[in-house]
Simulated scan of single mutants.
Amino acid sequence: MKRQKRDRLERARTRGYQAGVSGRAKEQCPYNDFDAKGHWLGGWRDAMEDKGSGLFIK
């Protein structure tokens, strides 16, 4: 049971990161669940930090 929950939350974080890299706004988070939304936003913030530091150059 714990592994399934961790996998779901890790997937939310990954999707948030991908959304941040692609330039989506944080208000477009598709999750309503508090935990999943928090992980999605964490991934989104990580992507914004990486973009700000020049990791992604177009």
Rank of each mutant, 00 (worst) to 15 (best):
M1Q: 06
K2G: 15
R3W: 12
R3M: 14
R3Q: 14
Q4F: 11
Q4M: 03
K5W: 09
D7R: 03
R8H: 00
R8F: 00
L9M: 08
L9Y: 10
A12I: 07
A12M: 07
T14R: 04
G16Y: 07
Q18G: 01
Q18E: 09
Q18N: 02
G20E: 02
G20F: 02
G20P: 00
V21G: 02
S22R: 13
S22W: 06
G23I: 12
G23W: 07
G23L: 13
R24S: 13
K26F: 09
K26N: 14
E27W: 01
E27Q: 03
E27M: 13
Q28W: 13
C29I: 08
C29A: 15
C29E: 13
P30T: 05
Y31M: 04
N32G: 14
N32H: 06
D33T: 04
F34M: 03
F34V: 00
F34P: 03
D35M: 12
D35A: 01
D35Q: 09
A36D: 07
K37M: 08
G38E: 01
G38R: 03
G38K: 01
G38L: 04
G38F: 07
G38V: 03
G38P: 10
H39G: 01
H39A: 03
W40K: 01
W40T: 02
L41H: 12
L41Y: 01
L41P: 01
L41I: 14
G42E: 09
G42S: 12
G43W: 03
G43M: 04
W44S: 07
W44N: 12
W44K: 10
R45F: 02
R45T: 05
A47H: 02
A47M: 06
M48S: 02
E49R: 13
E49C: 02
E49M: 10
D50I: 04
K51Y: 05
K51W: 09
G52A: 15
G52E: 05
S53N: 12
S53C: 06
S53H: 10
G54Y: 11
G54Q: 12
L55N: 05
F56G: 14
F56S: 11
I57A: 15
I57F: 15
I57Q: 15
I57W: 14
I57N: 15
